[in-house]
Amino acid sequence: MKSGEIARAASQALKALGLSFALALAPQAALAVAPAPAASAPAVTSTADAAAPAADAAAPVAAAAGSYTPLKPIEGVGMPVDGAIGLQQQYSPLGEYGHWMHNVVLLPIITVICVLVLVLLLIVIVRYNRRANPVASKTSHNTLIEVIWTLVPVLILIGIAVPSIDLLAKQFKPAPAKALTIKVTGNQWFWTYGYPDNGDFEVVSNMLNVPGQPTINNGVRDVGSKPWDGPSHLEVDNRMVVPVGEPIRLQITAADVIHSFAVPSLWFKLDAVPGRINEKVLFVEKPGVYYGQCSELCGVKHGYMPIAVEALPRDKYNAWVLTHAGGVIDGQKKPEAAPAAAAPVADATADAAADASEAPAADASAAPAA
């Protein structure tokens, strides 16, 4: 009996000792489990820190994308003026050259010729009529006069031809290799402007409706409803925006019939022919809005497809480009690498989250085993 009681007492003592030992190890196991979430927390924090520069880099682009406001045109600049005579004021180097040739070369010459012919006619009428000269002259020819009236017109034509050929050659000089390219397409009855160097987006340009007159383009607002609107029949909903102070390659075509892209104040006119691309350089010297119209009879609404060219400084032009979906600054690659660069960050975030979620479970399962 005593041996049995001794064995039973020893068994109870061993159980008490084991329980005490387990309670002593419990705080250490809890400490071993606790650091796991703390270790995963810095991984998540570092992922957020890595994503922060990308967000900061995107912030200026987002700010620039919303910074475009259309220019308000200046009265009398880049548009016709009531009662005006002569060419519009020019805002391109070729236009200034052509304006000089018209006013300084051609007009004086044609004026002198007209006055000379008029004076000769009056002399003949007064001196050689039947009453003043009853006996007509029988002179058959005069060598000196014939030489003069042959050589003088030839010299005049040569004098006109030299600057004319020079102006023609400069008008059709190709654009530089890296010049910005804009594609202009004439449609019945609106214009489409494509920007292949800026992400290949397109802008559709329709004439604004005139209040109190029949609607020309459904869904388009009335002229005068925005503070930057220009004259009626010339203002559009979306202008062709170009950078100022640099050559621009315009490639012009048509989708249906022959149109003609003409902006008088920029000395620009080129036909838009279906199935053909005509190319010419546009250069705008000063920021502003310049208006033109289709100059080829193209159908019933030929008079309702105006042209509005808005020239902006390069930084403002870039901001305008970024307002369009997929717009990129010319000379830069499309941001195709951005999603690929973001993928490792997303993967790292997912891995960190997986580690954070799996670590406590593993430690919790390990604790009872201990």
Rank of each mutant, 00 (worst) to 15 (best):
I110Y: 03
Q28P: 05
M101E: 13
L106I: 14
V105L: 00
A51M: 10
H102G: 00
P70R: 07
A43W: 06
D82P: 00
A32S: 14
D56Y: 05
A58I: 01
D82Y: 05
P108C: 02
G86K: 00
T47N: 00
I109E: 15
P37Q: 01
D56C: 11
L106E: 15
P35Y: 02
S46E: 13
L106W: 06
I74H: 02
G76F: 09
P80V: 01
V44K: 00
A43I: 04
L71S: 14
T45H: 03
V105F: 03
D56R: 11
P35E: 04
P42A: 06
Y91C: 03
A51S: 06
A32M: 06
L87D: 14
A38G: 03
N103D: 14
D82V: 12
I85K: 07
A52H: 10
W100F: 03
Y91Q: 03
L94S: 07
L94G: 04
A65M: 08
A51R: 01
T69N: 15
S40H: 07
A64N: 01
A39L: 11
L106K: 14
A59G: 04
T69G: 07
M101Y: 12
A58D: 12
I74Q: 06
E75Q: 11
S40K: 02
D49M: 01
T69D: 12
D82A: 15
V61P: 14
P53Q: 13
A84D: 15
Q28K: 07
L71P: 08
D82T: 12
G86Y: 05
I74N: 04
L94W: 04
M79I: 06
D56M: 10
P35A: 05
V44S: 15
V44R: 05
N103M: 06
A84W: 09
I85R: 09
A38E: 02
A34S: 12
V61G: 13
G98A: 08
V77F: 02
V105I: 02
G83I: 08
Q89C: 03
A55W: 01
A55P: 02
S46T: 08
S40D: 10
M101K: 14
A26F: 07
Y97F: 08
A48M: 02
P73N: 11
G66Y: 03
H99I: 00
T45L: 05
I110G: 09
Q89W: 02
G83C: 08
P73T: 04
P27E: 12
H99T: 11
A51D: 08
G86V: 10
A64G: 06
L107V: 15
H99Q: 09
G83R: 07
A55N: 08
G98H: 09
A39Y: 11
G86A: 13
P73L: 06
Q88M: 15
A51C: 03
L87M: 11
A84N: 09
T45W: 01
P37T: 09
S67H: 08
P42D: 15
A30D: 10
P37W: 04
L31D: 14
D49F: 05
